[in-house]
């Protein structure tokens, strides 16, 4: 086996675009589920509106990059309001069905030919809409080497800003959840009637949490477009949301670092399995059909599915969680 390849692939997977976007998205989900107890199964919808809001406003309306990003965030706030006003009064499992339906509506609409003039329909669109972002790159052009790992200047710049963003968002969330505001959220997670009886406006706090987590999701979507320089409705399917859930549960729910750790580990596992399968195929002990692009995707989904089940059954507190807390988690 080519160890250098394994390390290089693992580096790109665990610290690259996907890990960054997934970590940010899952931090948002952590605000929803981990701290407030909202069962949001439509986080992919927030990423979708963030990504498309940014891409469309830059491509079709020629707004500057940062303004485009702000528009993406604004659309996410709008989606959170639209979604929250009717559903936040519902029982937790109803909210799950409503959010998953809303995310599907978003995906179906942006993928339909009806709005294809703006969205590019089912194949999405690509373009150099994040050129400004890469123009800001102070690193001299060229390739950087770090042992077996090679990075272009643009990739290095993206990772630098991406991880700074992860750290900033994680810090903000950390500040929020250890404040009295965060205490109210955690109270709502445990029993919202009790919190109501203490004179707290539960609906407003849940709405704030939904908006904040949704905006963080939109930032993940914006990171995704900036890195990929393209958008495709299929990216934002329900499976994406479930990937976030898996890595959140893996890292540890209601832990600030949980989603970050989970994202890095998830992509590390993906990358190592893929590299091992591929080198197995070239060595002849893994059938070729298993390593085609679509099959690798399947192996990932199967791993996530199995991982999700095993985690919930055997270690529901994740890596960073405290088993004691779980003893009271009767819900």
């Amino acid at each position: 086996m080519d160890w250098n390849l394994l390390v290089a692939n693992a580096f790109h997977a665990a610290l690259g675009l996907n890990a960054i976007a997934y970590a940010i998205a899952a931090i948002g989900l952590n605000v929803h589920f981990g701290y407030t107890g909202l069962l949001n199964f439509g986080q992919a919808g927030f990423l979708a509106v963030g990504a498309y809001g940014t891409a469309i406003s830059i491509v079709h309306f020629n707004v500057p990059y940062l303004v485009g990003a702000l528009i993406g965030v604004a659309v996410a706030v709008l989606l959170a309001l639209l979604l929250g006003i009717p559903t936040l009064r519902l029982r937790a499992d109803y909210l799950a069905v409503a959010t998953i339906a809303a995310a599907e509506i978003v995906r179906l609409v942006i993928g339909s030919t009806v709005y294809a003039r703006w969205t590019g329909g089912s194949s999405g669109f690509s373009g150099a809409f994040a050129r400004t972002f890469y123009n800001w790159n102070p690193l001299p052009a060229g390739t950087y080497s770090l042992g077996p790992v090679r990075l272009t200047a643009d990739r290095a710049w993206f990772m630098l800003i991406g991880w700074s963003l992860v750290i900033i968002i994680a810090l903000l969330v950390w500040l929020l959840v250890r404040s009295p505001w965060g205490r109210v959220l955690k109270g709502i997670r445990e029993d919202e009637d009790a919190v109501r009886s203490l004179g707290k406006n539960v609906f407003a706090r849940k709405m704030q949490a939904l908006i904040i987590g949704g905006v963080i999701g939109a930032v993940a979507g914006i990171a995704l477009v900036t890195g990929e320089q393209s958008v495709n409705p299929q990216t934002f399917n329900t499976q994406l949301t479930f990937f976030f859930w898996t890595l959140l549960l893996l890292g540890g729910v209601a832990r600030v670092i949980g989603p970050v750790l989970g994202a890095v580990l998830l992509w590390l596992v993906f990358s190592v399995t893929e590299t091992v399968l591929r080198s197995g195929a070239s060595a002849g002990w893994v059938p070729d059909t298993l390593v085609s692009e679509s099959q690798i995707g399947l192996v990932r989904v199967a791993l996530v599915g199995l991982g999700l089940m095993l985690l919930m059954i055997f270690r529901p507190q994740g890596i960073l969680g405290d088993r004691r807390e779980l003893a009271f988690n009767v819900r």
Binding site: L172, S179, P180, W181, A194, F328, N329
Partner: peptide
């Protein structure tokens, strides 16, 4: 309705009204 996964002291603090830090902006 004890808030199980909050510590006893946090349960108590939650009860206080008019907390400035319960506004999302000031929380930061």
């Amino acid at each position: 309705k004890a808030l199980s996964r909050l510590r006893v002291l946090e349960n108590m603090r939650l009860g206080a009204t008019g907390q400035r830090g319960e506004s999302v902006w000031r929380a930061l």
